[in-house]
Design a protein around this nucleic acid. Structure first.
Lengths: 251, 251
DNA sequence: TGACATTTGTTCGTATATCGCACAAACTGT
DNA sequence: ACAGTTTGTGCGATATACGAACAAATGTCA
C-alpha cells in the first residue's frame, strides 16, 4: 500500500468522533484539539464537517454528537452475520437459565458485546451490543485470550491497563497467564467478582468448523445466589450445548 | 461557514461505512464505488484507510467491517446523558408491566432506539440501542411526529418510503396526518399491528422543562394477548407516571 | 481450450482542496 | 480595562481527488 492510499482527513475525523465519551459529551474546538492532538484548525474543520452532515450539533460553543452517529455502529451490527445468527440462541439460553446471556468478540484488549439477551439487571452498568469491557478481568475476555498463542495473549495483557476493580481482581501478568492457560485446558472461564462485587460469570468459546475461535458466549449471575461450583455444574452443560448448536449453524 | 471548512474526504469515508448493511456485508471496491457514487480510486482509498485503522478487514477481494466500528456508535451512546438516564426507568417499567419498554428519538424519517429493557421477544427482529424503525408506522414515531408542526410532520411523511408492512398499515399522508393530530391531542399513540402482525405498542412523549419533546418511550405487547383498549387502560397510567418521573430528573 | 470481451483493480500526472502555521478577533473572568 | 483563553481567517506548502490509461482477473462463447 502506497503512502497516498491513506486519507488522513478521514482518519482524523474518526478520531474526533471517538473523542466523545461519557466524561466528555460537550466539547469545544479546543477540547477536541487537545484530546486528539490535532491542530485546532483541523479539529474545527472535522467538527464542522460532522455538523454539516448531521452527525453533530453545534450551539456556537460546544459540539455534541447526534443519534445519526448510531448509523455507523449499526452498519457493523447489521452487516455482520454473527450477531444476528447468535441472538436466538442467546434468547434460548437466557430463557433456560433465567440469567443474562451474551456474546462478544475481541477488539484489542477489550471484549465487544455483539449480541445479548438480558434477563434481569445484575450489573451496575448496562450492557448492550457495542458495549466494551476489559478482556483481562471478564469471563469472555479470558476465553478469547486463551484462544490465542501464549505470546499474543501476554502481549495484550502487558499492554492492558490492569486496574483492580475489586479486591479479587487478578492484575499481574504471570497470574493472568496462568489463568489463561487453565482456561485453555478446561475449555471455559469463570470470573468470580473480579469485575464487580456480586457478579459471577462463566464463558465458553465458540469455534467455527476450522476450529478457529470466533466469539465467546457467557452467562452472568449474582454471586450471592450461586457459588462458582454451582455455576459450572448448573450452566456449563447447557452453554456447551448451545455453543455446539451455534457451531453447527456456522459455515 | 466557508467552503474550506468541509473535509470532503471525511464525508466520503463516512458514506463508505454506511454503505455496509445486512444485504451488503462483503463489498468489493467497485461495489462501494457504485453504492456511494465515488470514483473507484477514491472508494479504494477510503477502504484502505479504514483497513489500516482497523475498522475494516480486507481479504484481497472483499472488505468487511470489524467490531472496532462499534466504537463510533458507542461514542454517541456514552456521551449522551439521555440513554443512561432513561435506562433504569425503562427497567422499572418493563418490570412493572411484564413487557418490553424502549426509548427513542427521531433521526430524519426514522426513530432510533437509544435505550431498551427487553423482557421477552415479541418482534421478529431484535431491537437494540441504535436500531431503527420507520417513524410513520411505529408508536414512538407517531408521538415524535406529533411533537412537530403539521408542516414539518407532513414533509417527513411525504419523504418517507411508506410501505404497507401489514394489511393494517396506514400509508397515505392525509390518513397519517389525521393520526398524528389525534396523537397530539390525546397525548399518546397506539399502533395496532401496523408494523408487524401480532405486535401492538403504545407510546408517550417525554418533554423537558421547557416543554420540548426530546424522546418517546413505549411498551410493546403481543396483540392476541391484549386489545388496544386494554393496552391503554393497563399501560397508559404507568407509562405517564414513568414519563413524569423521567421529566423530573431532566434539566 | 483458446481468444475475445468485460469487469475489476491499480497507477499516474495534474488540478485543486486541505493542512498547519501565524496572526487577528472575540470572549471570559478578574 | 486588561491579561489570558478560545475561536476564526489568510496564505504558502503540501497532500488529496480526479479522470484516464494501464494491468490483471474474470467471464463467455465457439
Amino acid at each position: 500500500m502506497r503512502e497516498t492510499d491513506f486519507i488522513s482527513g478521514f482518519a482524523k475525523g474518526l478520531s474526533v468522533i471517538e473523542a466523545f465519551d461519557a466524561v466528555n459529551s460537550r466539547l469545544s474546538i479546543t477540547d477536541i484539539a487537545r484530546m486528539t492532538g490535532l491542530e485546532r484548525a483541523t479539529a474545527r474543520r472535522c467538527l464542522l464537517t460532522l455538523t454539516q452532515l448531521g452527525y453533530a450539533d453545534y450551539d456556537g460553543k460546544f459540539f455534541t454528537l447526534t443519534p445519526r452517529i448510531l448509523r455507523l455502529g449499526h452498519s457493523y451490527l447489521s452487516s455482520t452475520p454473527l450477531p444476528r445468527l447468535m441472538q436466538p440462541f442467546l434468547d434460548q439460553l437466557s430463557e433456560k437459565t433465567g440469567e443474562s446471556a451474551s456474546a462478544s468478540v475481541l477488539d484489542g484488549d477489550e471484549i465487544v458485546y455483539i449480541a445479548r439477551a438480558s434477563h434481569k439487571r445484575v450489573m451496575s452498568i448496562n450492557l448492550n451490543p457495542g458495549s466494551r469491557l476489559p478482556a483481562y478481568c471478564s469471563s469472555m475476555g479470558r476465553v478469547l485470550l486463551a484462544a490465542m498463542s501464549d505470546d499474543e495473549a501476554r502481549r495484550i495483557l502487558e499492554d492492558s491497563n490492569r486496574t483492580a476493580n475489586t479486591p479479587r481482581t487478578k492484575t499481574s501478568v504471570p497470574e493472568l497467564m496462568d489463568e489463561v492457560r487453565k482456561v485453555r485446558l478446561q475449555g471455559y472461564a469463570v470470573i468470580d467478582q473480579e469485575l464487580e462485587i456480586g457478579l459471577c460469570s462463566i464463558a465458553v468459546p465458540v469455534r467455527n468448523t476450522r476450529g478457529i475461535t470466533i466469539a465467546a458466549i457467557n452467562i452472568g449471575a449474582q454471586a450471592p445466589r450461586v457459588t462458582v461450583e454451582e455455576m459450572v455444574e448448573r450452566y456449563l452443560p447447557v452453554m456447551q450445548s448451545t455453543r455446539d448448536t451455534i457451531a453447527g449453524v456456522l459455515v
